[in-house]
């Protein structure tokens, strides 16, 4: 556990040292704030004291931002060779993978915490379904964790950060929208499988305030599979 935290801490430090963290935080808050308060189907347009519009926007912004954060994590270590120093220190592959995973998740959580003023403002405008807001945040965190796990995996594949980014988007877009669209067109067994695979289905049900174990298992398995594949990739490089 200690080793995991040491890795996370260094990664977080690196996010903030390289301005990456600030850029992500500012653009994320800018985007989500703009569409929540000023433009499109914003809070004043729908005339409801709810954060649904914010969750809808955050769902897409995080989808594009997360690969930008994760693409560096292993690709850069592989390219510069620092991975060699890292894995010869008293640390195992799992601690390394989890440390990197945790660092990015923490940065996303920081970003989400900074949007809490939206919640407070909306709560002052009218009656808010507090349960739905909190489960919406939980949904965002779970969804981010799933994409971080995919992003870390694609980053571990090559030495090239751009490859990591594009591949993460490519895999992500299936979960984000394509499975959902296909499920709408197909019926029967295949349709229901695709519907289950679609991340948006699970995200929407959570962000509406219904926390079902089925959804939790879905997110946790994506996270788990992504991390297992990453660990496998690390081990494979050393054989």
């Amino acid at each position: 556990m200690k080793q995991i935290w040491i890795i996370s801490r260094r990664e977080l430090q690196s996010f903030f040292n390289s301005l990456m963290a600030y850029i992500i935080l500012v653009t994320f808050l800018g985007f989500s704030g703009f569409f929540t308060w000023l433009f499109g189907s914003d809070v004043f347009f729908v005339k409801q004291a709810s954060l649904q519009s914010f969750f809808g926007i955050a769902y897409w912004t995080l989808f594009f931002f997360i690969p930008a954060l994760t693409m560096r994590l292993f690709a850069e270590e592989n390219r510069s060779g620092t991975i060699e120093l890292l894995v010869t220190k008293p640390i195992n592959d799992w601690q390394l993978v989890l440390g990197k995973f945790l660092s990015t998740l923490l940065l996303i959580i920081i970003a989400l915490v900074l949007t809490l003023p939206y919640y407070i403002t909306v709560a002052n405008l009218g009656p808010v379904d507090h349960g739905a807001v909190w489960s919406g945040y939980l949904g965002l965190i779970l969804m981010s964790a799933a994409y971080i796990s995919i992003g870390i995996f694609t980053s571990s594949i090559s030495n090239n950060q751009i490859v990591g980014y594009m591949l993460a988007l490519f895999i992500g877009i299936f979960f984000q929208i394509i499975f959902g669209l296909l499920a709408g067109n197909l019926s029967g067994f295949i349709g229901s499988i695709l519907d289950y695979l679609s991340l948006s289905t699970h995200f929407e049900s959570i962000s509406r305030g219904v926390i079902d174990t089925k959804d939790l298992i879905y997110f946790l398995s994506i996270i788990f599979i992504g991390l297992v594949l990453t660990e496998g990739n690390l081990a494979k490089k050393r054989i």
Partner: peptide, 13 residues
């Protein structure tokens, strides 16, 4: 204690 070839280090640290 290991010093690898080409001495890879985190350049931004």
């Amino acid at each position: 204690g290991y010093l690898p070839e080409n001495n890879p280090l985190y350049q931004d640290m």
